[in-house]
């Protein structure tokens, strides 16, 4: 479904991504973790072309992301993305947030879009909030709407860029619950997160990054059992000790 082949990126002389290669198969949930500044967010943003890269190739469902003649908007309409800071459209009501891209990009009728939108709001438990505006919702609610907005496009894969990092602790679970459910339904997911509990529960594989490189790319059990690299061991001991 997604294949990254030796992806490298530089900001000036500073290399943020170094020969990153991995693969995400249909129905797989892959968690990308690592210390801050390790390039995980940059990497996931390369997958739908929100960030450019200078070397290597990324294929999404067979389409090369880096090529100039690729229709990026079309590709992005098939790839759902959830951001750290939600990024709902603040000038639109919740239901309009869910319908606008369906109507303008997928050319669905307004009624069809609203039906789909309400269905998804129901699913994330927010159908009674459809007329409100994003600023009237809590962070956790906004993030659930953001997930619903991405799902409204019927994506073939979902990208999550630290979906719970900006949330108050008591709201983390309501978002993770939605994501776990999504994984259980067989959605292909690439998730950048520090939530190791989530990784343990639903990940098929864990990719560990440090300083722009992918250091480990193993099954979940192997990663939480005995990570091979010292760096990953350190990371885990710090993050799991509490």
């Amino acid at each position: 479904m997604i294949a990254l082949e030796k992806v490298s990126k530089w900001y000036g002389k500073f290399q943020v991504l170094n020969d990153c290669s991995t693969e995400i198969n249909k129905g797989e949930v892959v968690v990308v973790c690592g210390p801050s500044g390790s390039g995980k967010s940059t990497l996931i943003k390369c997958v739908n072309g929100l960030e450019t890269f200078q070397q290597g190739e990324i294929f999404v469902n067979g389409t090369s992301v880096g090529q100039a003649r690729t229709n990026l908007s079309k590709l992005r309409s098939q790839v759902g993305m959830v951001f750290q800071h939600f990024e709902l459209f603040p000038h639109l009501s919740i239901i309009d947030n869910l319908t606008i891209a369906q109507i303008k990009v997928l050319k669905r009728s307004k009624q069809e879009a609203i039906e789909k939108g309400m269905q998804l709001l129901e699913r994330v438990g927010l159908s009674n909030q459809s007329a409100k505006f994003p600023s009237q919702l809590s962070g956790g609610q906004q993030q659930r709407v953001a997930i619903a907005r991405a799902l409204a496009m019927d994506p073939i894969v979902m990208l999550f860029d630290e979906p719970t990092s900006a949330l108050d602790p008591e709201m983390v679970n309501e978002v993770l619950d939605v994501m776990v459910e999504l994984a259980a339904e067989g959605m292909t997911m690439m998730v950048v997160t520090h939530e190791m509990g989530f990784a343990r529960k639903v990940a098929n594989r864990v990719v560990f990054m440090d300083r722009g490189s992918i250091i480990e790319d193993t099954t979940k059990n192997e990663f939480f059992g005995t990570p091979r690299s010292k760096r990953a061991q350190q990371f885990l001991s710090k993050i799991l000790s509490y």
Partner: peptide
């Protein structure tokens, strides 16, 4: 910038 990212991510073209 995040708004631009979100607008791109749902598949909007530049003018959209």
């Amino acid at each position: 910038q995040g708004q631009i990212g979100a607008a791109k991510a749902v598949g909007f073209t530049y003018f959209q």
